[in-house]
Design a protein around this nucleic acid. Structure first.
Lengths: 327, 327
DNA sequence: ATATTATGTGTAACCGGTTACACATTATGG
DNA sequence: CCATAATGTGTAACCGGTTACACATAATAT
């Protein structure tokens, strides 16, 4: 392996000059620069990032902490983060936290020892102590913590409103809202948006808590529909819930969208594979991940960040589980 | 940050002794050991892995190279790799290659500079030159390269046989096999297994190439079914293809499983969300990832590896797209 | 013409570990 | 009882970068 000293010798300068040239700081004469450049090329020199990390106490690693990559919402997020990290020369470490504070803490400790440059975190634990005295750049993704941490989220409130309104516009009179877990801020915002739409319209509605889990959702909805035959529109807080609802409708022999319309939330690719294909409030998941990564890297590199709150617009994707709008 | 020198001073020994104690090699007296242990605890010393890497030219990073985490087969694999890596003290770097040799090469170069401990690779490029002179532990996952590289794959041939046989057992007489991309070894093995089943049974069948892509599969199958009304059983090489086939059947008003039975391959969770739920040859995806990680770590740690070829059994998961077996 | 500032460069210490080697002591063998 | 092997420990070099500091020279100011 060629080292900076080999390059220095070949170029006839000192290691300090080589280092200065490589990092573009300090003074380097034109002559020295060309000599070093030539030597670097000739020797095929590549900088050893481990050695650099040891002195600078920095690395080009970024940690992506998310609950579970297996949850269909996260792969696309991870993909986006990785894509932009790559273009900026960063490497992504994947951390499945299961929302477990112990696991998160463990990851953070381990990675701090590697001089990790920063974290992108999707976790409800973000206000936990192990983040408080973490003196490292952090971006909150899909979760709002406080105004001091840069945040990237969908416009969930608006999405909640849009989904509810879309159901009403399409003639649903008795809505069921599948509300997500209470500890999950984004789900609450969707609920708020839903509520706002309800205030503007004279329809009856009911809200039921439901985990983001297919089989559970299926069970809950099937029971609910069995007891409440008048429901003609379901707005789910996630596509997985919506898939469960659709399944429940099939189980009960309800025609979708004729008897019952369903709208999901997320826009994951599974939605289009269902029959009928799922109408949904689609988040721009890739964009969320991409922006999160870019904001984190800006922080890492000491650039000013314009917006601490990045709210990504959502949009209604109309597919088969809803009827044409009543105009 | 407390260093090994602080510990040495506190324990009244030399840094060499501390290092020996920490790494459990060389001679360390009982006395010295207890003194060091006490000092470590008192000072809350934690070893700096970056510094260690610099001298040892080793790290506890492992690279997971896969085509695209967005493909529903991979998240579970990644999850498994990460889980076992974590328990053995390794950290996973996620690399989406898009099967692009340039990207793979780039990752490999970057990570080698970080003294990465090894790679788990899911790629058709594995016989490419950048892997050939990679003097690092590697495990091939879901792809067979050669008998010198430890490999973890499903028993695809057997799965191909089982799926075809299951269709025949349930009364299908005219089969359509959706064959996966030719450059993809596992898909070919499934095809071979399918062929073996065909030899044992007197049914007619046809094979059509089809990418692992929902919308494409839907289009191809819809066209095919339109032209060949007698098809009463489809065996797809992946669940995503199968979902497309199911959609096509719906589009054409075919009753599944009454008129047309469908079996997929993979066992991803999306399958159970479909209506009817997808019968499939399920791979034990988690197990594949877990074994790959364990085999890699064994290699890294210089332990003997018993099996270079780990073939994970698949199993038939009967759900709604097939009828009860004809007995 | 001299003081000051900007530019350019090299030496050597440092980051925090590992380990070769030299040396000392104790145990074992013949 | 002495040769040899096993056990135990410390010093200092090394891994491959970065950078404080000292020093030299060229440019600009006064």
């Amino acid at each position: 392996m060629t080292t900076i000293r080999d390059v220095a010798k070949k170029a006839g300068v000192s290691v300090a000059t080589v280092s200065r040239f490589l990092n573009g700081n300090g003074y380097v004469s034109q002559e020295a620069a060309t000599a070093v450049k030539a030597a670097v090329e000739e020797l095929n020199y590549e900088l050893n990032t481990v050695a650099r990390s040891l002195t600078t106490k920095k690395s080009n690693l970024i940690g992506l902490i998310l609950p579970d990559i297996t949850n269909p919402f996260f792969p696309e997020l991870a993909r986006a983060v990785e894509d932009v990290a790559l273009t900026y020369g960063y490497t992504v470490v994947l951390c499945n936290s299961d929302e477990d504070p112990k696991k998160e803490k463990n990851y953070i400790e381990t990675l701090k020892k590697k001089y990790i440059a920063g974290f992108i975190v999707t976790s409800n634990q973000l206000d936990a102590p192990h983040y408080a005295n973490l003196k490292l750049p952090v971006v909150a993704l899909d979760r709002v913590i406080n105004e001091r941490i840069p945040t990237v989220v969908s416009n969930n409130r608006q999405g909640g409103f849009m989904g509810a309104q879309a159901l009403v516009d399409r003639g649903s009179k008795n809505l069921l809202f599948l509300r997500g877990p209470e500890e999950f801020g984004s789900a609450n915002d969707r609920y708020i948006g839903f509520g706002e739409a309800m205030e503007k319209n004279s329809v009856t509605y009911e809200t039921v808590f439901c985990p983001f889990h297919f089989a559970e959702a299926e069970k809950i909805v099937e029971q609910y529909l069995h007891d409440n035959k008048d429901i003609d529109g379901i707005f789910a807080s996630s596509d997985v819930q919506a898939a469960g609802a659709l399944k429940a409708a099939h189980n009960l022999g309800l025609a979708v969208p004729k008897d019952l319309q369903i709208i999901g939330f997320d826009g994951i690719s599974m939605g289009e594979m269902l029959t009928p294909a799922l109408t949904t409030i689609a988040q721009d998941i890739y964009k969320m991940g991409a922006i999160a990564a870019r904001v984190l890297i800006k922080q890492i590199e000491g650039q000013p960040i314009e917006n601490f709150m990045n709210e990504i617009p959502v949009n209604l994707v109309v597919r088969g589980t809803t009827k044409g709008a009543v105009t």
